Computed example of a mutant assay.
Amino acid sequence: MKIKTLLLSGTIATSLLLGACNNMDDKKDSMKEETKSESKMENKDMDNAKVMKEGMFKGENKEKVEGKAMIKDGKLMLKDFSSSKGPDLHVYLTKDGDIKKGKKIDMVDYAKSEQSFDLKGVNVKDYNTVTIYCDKAHVTFGSAMLK
């Protein structure tokens, strides 16, 4: 009876130990994946630091948006900016003004002439337009084509 209990205990202990080893391998794999994705984000950020684009805003849908949008050193900067008042204005990076496929950056202050937004983790090469959009009213206030 004691031998059966000893063998059963040994088998269970061995199974648990081997199971833990497999979990460690899974953790190593997931850590490798995290490191790869962090490396990709760092590469995007380094690429963003090299990108320089700018464009002038034009109002749309009977709304006023003026000033310059500029991407430089991994940041989106608005210069001499002004806009019509809106309850929920945000700045987006878009491809040809398409908000649905765009990247929401942050809330924008319609009355602040100089604003800056960090683009960490955003691949700016995927976008060619900076768009001011009212999320609450679902209206584009204006856009700047980047060149």
Rank of each mutant, 00 (worst) to 15 (best):
E66Y: 00
I3T: 14
Q115Y: 03
N22S: 13
Y110I: 00
G102Q: 05
M31G: 04
D135K: 09
D47N: 13
K27C: 06
K101S: 12
V124M: 10
D26Y: 11
E114N: 08
Y127A: 04
G102V: 05
Y127L: 11
C134M: 08
K136I: 08
I105C: 02
K2F: 09
D109S: 14
K28P: 00
E42C: 02
S30T: 14
L7H: 06
G86T: 06
E63M: 13
G142Y: 03
G19Q: 10
L78G: 10
I105L: 02
Y110D: 02
M1D: 14
K53D: 09
E34I: 09
K2G: 14
E42Y: 08
S143G: 12
C21E: 07
L8E: 07
S113W: 02
V124D: 04
K28H: 02
G74T: 09
L146T: 10
M24K: 11
D45S: 06
E114S: 10
D96H: 13
E38G: 03
L8R: 08
Y110H: 07
S9N: 10
N61E: 14
G74S: 13
L16V: 02
K36T: 06
Y110C: 03
L76M: 06
V130H: 01
I132P: 01
S82Y: 08
S82H: 08
E38Q: 06
K72R: 15
D25V: 12
T131C: 00
N43K: 10
L89W: 07
M52D: 07
V108P: 01
E38M: 07
M70K: 15
K104S: 05
K4R: 13
A137T: 11
K125N: 15
C21G: 15
D98F: 11
T94D: 05
N48S: 03
K100Y: 11
V108D: 02
L146R: 02
V108M: 06
M145D: 13
Y127T: 08
I3D: 13
M24V: 12
K68P: 01
M46F: 08
Y133V: 07
A69T: 10
G74K: 12
D47E: 05
G102I: 06
S82E: 07
I132G: 03
K101M: 05
G59T: 06
D45R: 03
F81A: 04
L8D: 00
M70V: 15
I12V: 15
Y133H: 14
Y110M: 02
A49Y: 01
G86M: 04
D118S: 15
I3H: 14
S30Q: 10
K75C: 14
S15K: 10
A49T: 00
T129Q: 13
M70N: 12
L17A: 12
K112Q: 08
C134D: 15
D25C: 08
I105W: 03
D135F: 09
G74N: 11
D135Q: 11
S82N: 11
K4W: 04
G74I: 09
G10N: 00
I3F: 12
G10E: 05
Y127G: 06
G67V: 11
C134N: 12
T140A: 01
V130N: 00
K32W: 08
K62F: 13
A144N: 02
V108W: 02
S15Y: 12
A13I: 13
F81N: 03
K147T: 12
N123I: 09
D118N: 13
D135L: 09
G67I: 09
M145C: 02
D47W: 01
E60Y: 04
G67F: 07
I12L: 15
S84M: 00
K4T: 14
H138Q: 15
K136V: 10
